[in-house]
Design a protein around this nucleic acid. Structure first.
Ligand code: SF4
Ligand code: SF4
Lengths: 162, 162
DNA sequence: AAATTTAGGGATATTTTATATCCATAATAT
DNA sequence: ATATTATGGATATAAAATATCCCTAAATTT
């Protein structure tokens, strides 16, 4: 069970978008080039963000994406779910229904303990991701990244931002 | 990102094994029949449990599996990891290394904030599963399952246990 | 001693998901 | 007008999950 690589991609892209000045847009092309990713496929991931309402897009030259909300209001969970979907990782195939000792037509009123416990673990994962915002990430990255690289990167980005 | 269905299978199987009297074994055939599962493929899942040291097996007629430890010492995490593997769900492809603004040969000392946060979420999932044992599960199931079904099931199981 | 039953492991096939590319379209900027 | 962009559909490829088959060695039953 491994997350799509698109999750990493869009997290990095959002971190960049979070540093963009108000009103500026950054294109798929620039984001793909900056991260060394296949442009067409990254585009699908960014479209997922757009469909989830996390980013706003605009067309034409100087077009691209910007965040739809302030970085403090965008969580890791928002972003991960946009790409990965909101489905739980444990899907219950209801195999207890196959138990030959069950009366025919017996219908279980609710999911059993196995499913509930697995879903609680899923929720713990979600809760952690819900507790971290893009603003938090930006703060950490700006502290940890060597200033030279950090500045060069945003200079590079601004040169390409529409 | 969805867990293998084998995870559900082995959790149910372990719940049954946990109710087995000391020294008795239950075969793959019986476990597959009880849950309505493909015997050969379930066998692979049970072999994973065996390789992880969670169950003990014995050959021949009246052979099969029993738990290797008391139910209170077997956690959901033990069981899930035996089948699903211990790898983290977020794998870092180190795409920041592709950043054209980085000096050539620059080597990042440690994983960045994105990876660390995602790994913390993984750990929250693990922590929840680590906190629930087969003994806990057995207690809940025995309370929630209608007594008639519960008793019939273990009668059925004991008739087939070696 | 022979026949039966079992776990274990290897090989292989099928189905589903993830990854990736290509193209047509409409909107926007210059 | 021309160039550039997001979007969505179609399709192709690679990888993983699901599943079956068969052989072996060990243990039990007869
Ligand atoms: S016992 Fe629980 S996990 Fe298993 S099939 Fe039923 S509801 Fe799903
Ligand atoms: S920035 Fe973090 S998540 Fe992204 S590639 Fe680097 S270490 Fe991995």
């Amino acid at each position: 069970m491994i997350l799509k690589s698109q999750v990493e991609w869009v997290l990095h892209c959002c971190a960049i978008l979070a540093g963009l000045p108000d009103g500026r847009y950054l294109s798929t092309k620039a984001l793909a080039e900056l991260h060394g990713l296949p442009k067409e496929y990254l585009s699908k991931a960014l479209q997922s963000l757009s469909q989830a309402g996390l980013v706003h897009s605009t067309l034409g030259p100087s077009g691209g994406y910007r965040l739809a909300r302030p970085p403090a209001e965008l969580t890791f969970l928002d972003i991960a779910e946009a790409v990965e979907g909101k489905a739980r990782t444990f899907v219950c195939a209801n195999i207890r229904a196959n138990n030959p000792c069950r009366p025919k037509g017996y219908c279980d009123s609710s999911p059993c303990a196995v499913a509930r416990i697995m879903w609680e673990a899923d929720e713990a994962w979600r809760q952690k991701l819900r507790s971290v915002t893009l603003a938090d990430l930006g703060e950490i990255l700006s502290q940890e990244t060597p200033p030279a690289i950090w500045n060069d990167t945003f200079e590079w980005v601004l040169k390409r931002a529409g």
